Structure formats: structure tokens, C-alpha cells
Amino acid sequence: MFTLRIRKVVHHSGRVATLYFSSPLNSYPGQFIMLNVFDMEEIPLSLSSSSSVTVKAVGETTRKLVEFSGGELVGIRGPFGRPFTPSKKALIVAGGIGIAPMLYLYEYLRTCDAKIRVIYGGKTAEDMIFPDRFDDSVILTEDGSLGEKGTVTDALAGEDFERYERIYVCGPEGMIDAVVKILDENNSLHKAEISLERYMKCGIGVCGSCVLENGLRVCADGPVFSGRDLK
């Protein structure tokens, strides 16, 4: 483990914040770190850039992180895990806090001159973290408080999946299940790369706390899986 100082904190809402580290990490989009708030537990967090994590307050440690104001020291192990595979024609599908690793992927693909379309949804405007960061995008909320009223699956109904080399997915598991079904029905599941979140203790494939029903470990075999792995 090594330590980094939090250089800056951007609060998106009362429950979500992006923490920027004092130096970048040698990483790729889709990877995660194990972050330790001293005197509290160590938790896995996806990178939202090479030098940041975007955190939603759902437990004691994440609540503490969202309360940071900058200058704090944190412990870090990693980055770990299997990243996304780059492509030149990409569709990004994200829900809620699942946009965090997708922002890193989006910015990375832009440096590769890729053509990128983003479909991003949430329940309300408060759930939307980076709605204005994408050029070609469809923004949706279930209550219509931001962008179009609807869900990401509504937006996918009008997509021509043949246009894309890769389809990247991250969000709540209910959303992921629905997207996998749509892609499978359209013979496009082989193009999908899906980022999953699970509770982890070690982050390196030893403890078994993140094993899926098919035996794959989210930390070591993922967190990015092919669509066929998750069907």
C-alpha cells in the first residue's frame, strides 16, 4: 500500500463527490483501486480518471469520503483488474454512479480518435453526475427531471448495434440484466464489455468474496467481463 493526498474534491450532490489525487496512477479505464480511509475499512472504487475516483455515499467509509474537502491522506493498493478494450466505434451505456468508470473510458477513447455515442440514465436529475461531459449523447431520467423522460433501455430500442465495434455497459444490475437481454436479442452480445461491482476484501482474487455464480472473480477476472461471460 502507498499513500496519496487528496488534492481537490468536487461535490456533485450531497451524496456524490469526485476526489482528485495529488498524482496520477498508472492505470487503464475499467480498473479499480482498493482505497483505505485510515481507522476505517478498505473499499474498492472504480477510477473515474487516472487521478480520481467518484464516490457515492452508501456506507460509513463512502460517507466519510464524500465529506472530504481536500488535503486528506488515503492509502491505496492497485490499480487492479481487467480494463476495457479500446475500439474506434463505441457505444457507452451507463446508469447512475456507473458513469464513473465510463467517463475515464470516454476520455481515453477520445485520445484514440474514436467515434463515441453515450446513453446515460438515472432515476432523477440528482442521480446524474456528468451529464454535460459527452458530445454525442442521450441523457434520460425516469421522472423527466433532466434530459428525456425514460430509461436507457428505452433509448436502446432505436439503436443500430451494427454501427459499433464495442458496446460498454456499467450501472445497476437490473439495468445490466435488461441491456444484456436486448443485446442478446439483437445478436450483439459478443460486442459487449460489462463492468461489475462487488464487495471485495482483498482485490487480488484470494478471499473469494466477489465470486460470481459462474465462478469468475470480479476482482481478478474482471471487473470488466465480456457479454458472453455474463449471459
Rank of each mutant, 00 (worst) to 15 (best):
G81K: 09
G81D: 08
R82L: 01
R82W: 09
R82T: 15
F84W: 13
F84C: 10
F84R: 08
T85H: 12
T85P: 02
T85L: 10
T85W: 01
P86I: 11
S87Q: 10
K88A: 05
K89W: 10
K89R: 15
A90W: 07
A90V: 09
L91Y: 14
L91R: 09
L91M: 11
L91P: 10
I92F: 04
I92C: 01
I92W: 05
I92P: 00
A94W: 04
G95A: 09
G95F: 02
G95K: 07
G95H: 06
G95V: 07
G96S: 03
G96M: 09
G96K: 07
G96I: 10
G96V: 12
I97A: 00
G98V: 07
G98H: 02
I99V: 14
I99C: 02
P101M: 04
P101S: 04
P101H: 07
M102A: 02
M102Y: 05
M102H: 02
M102Q: 09
L103A: 00
L103R: 13
L103Q: 04
Y104N: 03
Y104W: 11
Y104L: 02
L105C: 03
L105Y: 10
Y106A: 06
Y106G: 03
E107T: 13
E107L: 09
Y108N: 14
Y108L: 01
L109E: 14
L109A: 08
R110Y: 09
R110K: 15
T111N: 14
T111S: 15
C112R: 15
D113E: 11
D113P: 01
A114C: 09
A114W: 07
A114Y: 10
A114G: 04
